[in-house]
Design a protein around this nucleic acid. Structure first.
Lengths: 143, 143
DNA sequence: TGTAATGATTATAGAGACACAACTACTTTC
DNA sequence: GAAAGTAGTTGTGTCTCTATAATCATTACA
């Protein structure tokens, strides 16, 4: 059965989860903003961000984007056409190719990250201890 | 200029915002899950949820979905075709129509809400005081 | 009362996001 | 070294999203 109290915690957690979704997905959703700013669709921006940390094989990129290989090829083709990424030979396996960002691609990724990670005003307006409380718990969740 | 300390707060807030986005948009994104469960695209589910609280004119629905009128008509047509919504005459303005959910539509909306609002395990696993801290701050943000 | 404004719809079209099958080029395995 | 497996690509097609323009019905205004 259930200990008393679990219900209340579940209720609170549900409210929290719903609230977080409203904040992130509805109220401060910046997908369109980034896409407009960089002149490309959001899926391309997602790819840029995954490639940014360092070269990947297409296979790895596909996994991290939950996309199948053909679609991954399409995305990378587009980034290459825009001069943001390039394919380089894999040092060991010649079947494989590594994708990495060009200097221009890195700049684009940085712009995207800048837009996506700037905290919204209402978050910044909170008293510092509230922000720190969030930081503590969110870090724990990301653990 | 800037008082000392603002930088640190900005940095913390940025980390928090980025973390929240990772949690909500990447790690526990349930768009696909709901869409699969209800057999309709996520935009239909968004519409269902907006209509659920009570009848709306198409205009109001369009505004709340940030969609233009023609697309709103398409969405409502689809919901009607699925038997989830119906158009009823506006009591005052005969140009206008109200959209409301059928019993089946309400059931579908409930299923969607159930899937979307169940908190993820890692959130539920937090100590109660952490969940309550989140609740307090998130409620403040939602104003 | 005629003209303008408003709510909704229809028609059309383009862009984006994927999925599936078939194919090429390599690599591994027996 | 032949068969099987793996990485990536190409080709095709479907569904979704969304914008624009034109149209119809109703209401408000002058």
């Amino acid at each position: 059965m259930e200990r008393p109290g679990d219900d209340a915690t579940l209720e609170t957690a549900t409210r929290v989860w719903q609230g977080l979704n409203t904040l992130v997905a509805d109220r401060h959703n910046r997908r369109k903003e980034v896409a407009d700013a960089l002149g490309m669709s959001f899926s391309r921006i997602r790819a840029l961000r995954r490639i940014a940390p360092g070269p990947l094989t297409l296979r790895e990129l596909a996994q991290r984007m939950s996309a199948d290989p053909p679609y991954t090829t399409v995305i990378v083709d587009d980034l290459v056409k825009r001069g943001l990424a390039e394919r380089v030979a894999h040092p060991v396996d010649r079947r494989s190719k590594l994708v990495r960002l060009t200097a221009e691609g890195k700049a684009a990724a940085d712009r995207a990250i800048a837009i996506l990670t700037v905290p919204p005003d209402d978050l910044l307006a909170l008293p510092r201890e509230d922000i720190e409380a969030l930081d503590r718990v969110v870090s724990k969740l990301l653990g």
